[in-house]
Design a protein around this nucleic acid. Structure first.
Lengths: 117, 117
DNA sequence: CGCAGATTTAACCATACGGTTGAATGCTAG
DNA sequence: CTAGCATTCAACCGTATGGTTAAATCTGCG
């Protein structure tokens, strides 16, 4: 199994797309919505006061990052979350965990001040 | 201390700034660099073939997200990582962990159809 | 067929991005 | 004071973003 283990070398442009997609409160909100349950575009758009066309653009951005998948279903379509690409983003961020979890920062401060003063 | 109780509501614009800052390969690379050790602006810029002014702009974006801190030191300055804001981003993403960790994805694939892309 | 509903596309607008070059600023050293 | 180095600011450029409204597309249905 573990079909996903095939390629795990941090796609470059992919991360750009994912982080960019997440850099907007409306899009993050949309993701929360479709995570709850798959929705149609109209359903997704309803809570926001922006036009449907604007939401359609947001969906395109999310789709570009592969964070959502669409299933055409007759005259409408169902949008569902595809969280997998977030994993790469999360893993990227995770490398910096030690920088916030430990007092390493304070330690570094000491070392730096000593060595370059 | 006791700063923990203070933050309970994931600042919205903050996340925008952090994700936006991370949505660029050069900036991510800069972060990796200053994570290794604090650097001056000139040092940071050297590896890239863009102008110093361009790097200065990138630093401003990173600073806006509070991902770096600058310490003015005479005629130059020292830039160091401040990874803390990444934590909020990581926590945001983490909510979706279950969506990629389970076989839910595989299940979804089956339900959707066999899309070989 | 032909219309209604769901979405996208097109055209347009203001603003932001990422990059450039060149001038300006700030600090240290002669 | 002035030269020099480090960094930013200013002005400009082309493209992307996020938003709008209006027209176009696609689909199911009476």
């Amino acid at each position: 199994m573990v079909k996903s283990a095939a390629r795990r070398k941090t796609p470059p442009a992919r991360l750009d797309a994912v982080f960019h997609a997440l850099a907007d409160a409306t899009r993050r909100s949309i993701l929360r919505g479709v995570a709850e349950r798959p929705k149609t575009v109209g359903e997704i758009a309803r809570p926001y006061r922006v036009s449907l066309a604007a939401v359609s653009k947001h969906l395109k951005v999310l789709e570009r990052a592969d964070l959502i998948r669409r299933e055409k279903r007759g005259s409408f379509q169902i949008v569902r979350l595809n969280a997998a690409p977030m994993r790469a983003a999360e893993e990227w961020i995770r490398r910096y965990e030690r920088f916030w979890n430990r007092q390493l920062d304070a330690l570094q401060d000491l070392l730096d001040r000593e060595d370059s003063r």
